[in-house]
Design a protein around this nucleic acid. Structure first.
Length: 350
DNA sequence: AAACCGGGGTC
DNA sequence: GACCCAGGTTT
């Protein structure tokens, strides 16, 4: 056990937050919390964790749930593939593993939605296997404490920081050690304005001694965002409108939305009604446009979405749409999992 | 190795 | 507006 891990452990015991998944060793609870907390802050993920534990107290309950219901609870949390993988893994655990999670890092890696970080977290926290977690917090602490300038988001960085993490691992208590490291990164060694004054490692921190805290960790910049223009068609036919499940290999997989025409450039309405897909969706009928919403700018990490909602009353026959569209009242859309963008529009209607 | 996948918080 | 986050999967 290194000097550093001893200091961190002491700090953790006195400064850790009380969180529901820290009161249990049930692998199901550890797993659920780790999936939810991938790329997600505790403040945002906590209420989702409580909802899932309440609705699905064990892996069998989750396994027997309907995927659409799982997605509905997940709604608003983002990265929706996590929910689909989590559901599938629950079914594998229930049906092929007799309800028990595999207990080793290597076996955990075979499950969907569980990569190196999550496998190490579950293996160490739930089963005491001495494997280090390397997440954003750990990258940050190690880069600063050891003054390590290798970019973290490269394969070389992954290897360099994994070795550092193994070097300071507490093999006798890996679960607590890993959580302590991440908690220190979250509360003290923050990305901006770290609280070095309260940091138990300050005297050992090379970045602090050399004034390089703002420069570490080093990251290779990501590609710029692209712009997308979504034109949603809100048909209103006898109190009913139409929604459809997204299935293509794209954002919001398995979530619901209105019929939509996407363009790569902004179009005015005159240009839009000449669009091929407009003709196809209207199937030759000359519907009147009642209202066009303002532009909703929805920002994802890697995309800028500019959306508007076009209100189209239908007086005569129902518009012909493909079979996969569902006819629903506006009020009943709340039963379906929808992107935050759609949720915001529905809230604005009220 | 690089691109892709959400959303909210912070400064 | 830019940056960040308790990462994983696909190409």
């Amino acid at each position: 056990m290194s000097n550093i891990s001893e200091i961190i452990a002491e700090w953790y015991v006195h400064n850790k937050r009380e969180l529901p998944w820290r009161k249990t060793k049930f692998p199901y609870c550890i797993w659920l919390s780790e999936i939810i907390l991938q790329q997600t802050r505790i403040n945002q993920g906590l209420k989702y964790y409580l909802k899932f534990i309440d609705q699905y107290p064990d892996v069998h309950m989750l396994a027997s749930a309907d995927l659409d219901d799982v997605l509905k609870i997940w709604q608003g949390l983002g990265y929706y593939t996590r929910a689909r993988n989590m559901h599938e893994t629950a079914r594998v655990i229930a049906n092929q593993f007799g309800g028990s999670f595999p207990s080793s890092y290597k076996e955990l890696l075979n499950l969907k939605g569980i990569g190196k970080y999550t496998a190490a977290a579950i293996a160490s926290i739930a089963f005491g296997e001495p494997v280090p977690v390397v997440d954003g917090n750990v990258y940050r602490i190690l880069a600063r404490v050891f003054g390590e300038h290798t970019p973290v988001n490269t394969s070389e960085g992954e290897s360099v920081f994994r070795k550092l993490a193994e070097h300071i691992l507490d093999y006798r208590n890996p679960g607590q050690h890993n959580q302590a490291l991440m908690e220190l990164g979250s509360l003290i060694c923050r990305p901006k304005k770290p609280l070095c004054h309260d940091c138990p490692l300050a005297q050992y921190c090379r970045a602090k001694h050399s004034g390089l805290i703002p420069d570490l960790p080093v990251k290779i910049p990501k590609k710029a965002s692209r712009n997308r223009y979504f034109n949603y068609l809100v048909f209103m036919h006898h109190e009913k409108t139409y929604i459809c499940k997204r299935n293509s290999n794209d954002i919001w997989h398995s979530l619901y939305e209105f019929p939509m025409i996407e363009t790569s450039e902004p179009l005015n309405i005159k240009q839009l009604v000449k669009h091929k897909e407009w003709e196809s969706l209207m199937s030759g009928s000359a519907y009147q446009i009642r209202n066009i919403s303002g532009i909703y700018h929805h920002k994802l990490t890697h995309q800028n979405i500019y959306a508007r909602f076009i209100d189209i009353p239908v007086n005569g026959e129902a518009p012909y749409l493909e079979k996969h569209f569902i006819s629903v009242t506006l009020d009943s859309i709340v039963q379906y999992a929808v992107p935050r963008l759609i949720e915001r529009y529905l809230q604005d209607l009220k």
